[in-house]
């Protein structure tokens, strides 16, 4: 019997007559309804237009007003709450690669609705590739490999972002570079995908690098905000 990926309880899928007659394959949900409800989706009409944070008004939030102008905005799918934190703990830090399937479908659907030809995921360092063994972002989108044309400058990350304070994070220098294999970016809209948007520093570094190389605009897509 299939079990929920998050709580390991058997999921009870009811076989209905319409399904039997539809001749479609049985779609097994990867997580149970109870676990899914612990995540809070962000509705576009109730979020900051620049960073995607859930808030009542459509005006840029106080964090976004502090950033300079950039042809960039971010969308987020879920609020970063306790359930999301627990998910990242299990997926990224404990390294349970199976959990990519929990949000894979949701992210791919949103990505398709953005209708952009060029999609790139924030890379992880080569060192992370040898310890964690996968890129958590491309795990949702594709095969868990780094994107081939956006890469990190350093081999290792000295201090992980999650261990820094807000001030330290904002002072981080440009960590990314483009390789020769990058596609033509001139007058294109590029979608950058990342796991969490916290201060926006990482996302904006990647965005400004791509904008400097001629892109028209950049859209960020993150799982959580």
């Amino acid at each position: 019997m299939p079990v929920c990926l998050l709580c390991q309880r058997p999921s009870d899928v009811k076989l209905t007559l319409p399904w039997v007659l539809s001749w479609q394959p049985l779609l097994q949900p990867v997580v149970c309804a109870a676990c899914w409800q612990t995540f809070t989706p962000i509705i576009a009409s109730q979020a900051c237009p620049d960073c995607g944070r859930a808030q009542p008004s459509r005006n840029p939030c106080h964090d976004c007003r502090r950033w300079g102008p950039l042809a960039f905005y971010n969308q987020a799918l879920f609020t970063y709450n306790d359930a999301m934190q627990a998910y990242f703990e299990q997926y990224k830090f404990k390294g349970d690669y199976r959990l990519r399937r929990v949000f894979s479908q949701a992210l791919l659907t949103r990505l398709a609705s953005l209708k952009s030809a060029i999609v790139v995921a924030i890379p992880v360092t080569p060192e992370t590739m040898t310890t964690r063994g996968f890129n958590q972002v491309t795990g949702w989108l594709a095969e868990g490999e780094n994107s081939d044309w956006l890469r990190t400058k350093g081999q290792t990350k000295l201090i992980p972002q999650s261990k820094k304070t807000r001030q330290d994070r904002l002072l981080t220098a440009q960590p990314f570079e483009l390789t020769a294999t990058a596609p033509k970016l001139a007058n294109q809209t590029v979608v950058i995908v990342d796991d969490v948007y916290t201060t926006g520093r990482t996302m904006r570094h990647a965005a400004s690098l791509i904008l400097e190389n001629g892109a028209k605009s950049v859209v960020g897509l993150t799982l959580a905000r």
């Binding site: 390294g95 349970d96 690669y97 199976r98 590739m129 063994g133 996968f134 095969e143 868990g144 490999e145």
Partner: peptide, 18 residues
Amino acid sequence: LPRQQFYCYQCLNLGRIS
């Protein structure tokens, strides 16, 4: 895992072994 690597999903809680 990517790159023809594998991990054990059964004893993850003791630290991942791959």
